[in-house]
Amino acid sequence: MVDFGGWDMPVQYPAGTIEEHLRTRTHAGLFDVSHMGEIDVRGSDAIAFVNRLTANDVTKLVDGQAQYSALTTPQGTVIDDLLVYRVAGDHLLLVVNAGTTDKDWEWIKSHHSGESVALRNASAEYCQIALQGPDAESILQPLTDVPLSEIKYYHFRPGTVDGVSGIVSRTGYTGEDGFEVYAPADRAEQLWNKMLDAGKTGTPTGVLPCGLAARNTLRLEAGMALYGHEIDETTTLLEANLGWICKLDKGDFIGREALAQQKEAGIKRKLVGFEVTERGIARDEQDVLVDDEKVGKVTSGSPAPFLKKNIGMAYVPVGYASVGQEIKIDVRGRLVGAQLVKTPFYKRTK
């Protein structure tokens, strides 16, 4: 067990990270992600308020739809990345990272000025169980009254799972199809055990409980950012390849001006993906070199169990950010060759 944002969480279960990762890609993996924070926003100005604090366009959401977005600073850097769920026109649920929940909560409260909204940090009220992988729908369907095939990617429905009322969302952090179930915190164990049973855990193709290490390798293969690594208060959304969530034309929001200026002037550095081409594993924080000169840092580096390669992401100057660029990684004093590749590293076949 490790401390993760104040939560005791397993790095891996007995099957081990590689097996957990592979099973999620080929069948199904179960993740207890109850540590994630939930902030409830209600009131007639809920959409306008959240639209002013986040980069993506909340007005584009319909009831039952979710959106990947970010809370931004006036400089266009990232307070946190989050999912915005539109429960109703006057009710949004913001799902934020565990380690940043308190910071986000303070940030959101402090930027509330005049809008007619009621804010509640509901993090302790929810558990969140993520069932991910190609078998997720067939495992979950018998347990829920929600017709899962009708839920599109990044949509959700209220409903029951094993008789427990909650929200079933077709979202995830693995690059696979799958669901995230939000329910009352005291039902976490019941739902966890039920989904393991329904997924025939313990059999060679059954669902495996997965720890933090597999969650990280899965999201990395899928090219997804992790707060504190690829994005933080020093990186802008444009540098982090998250221009697609910057809706500069939607009206004013915190950071809009800075992002518009940066877009106009052009970014100086950029988040890229690389594959190690020599023997060695790149790790977080290691230096990236081009022609013996330090040009950047690895934000996440790890073996990729499904791709069977050693991969990573790094910030480099835009002049060195083209696919095919050769770089070196300083792996504890040894320079190891790597090459920039397209991200995501892994994309599931539909």
């Binding site: 990270t17 097996e19 290490a213 023997r279 790890s302 073996p303 504890r332």
Partner: peptide, 28 residues
């Protein structure tokens, strides 16, 4: 956990007791 990489010294390298001579890497 799963060992995915082992870095070892070369033949001829000399070490004193308790010195690091390589590393073992798991996924994490």
């Amino acid at each position: 956990g799963d060992v995915v990489y082992v870095e070892l010294p070369k033949a001829g390298d000399e070490f004193s007791a308790s010195e690091s001579f390589g590393s073992v890497e798991s996924v994490k």
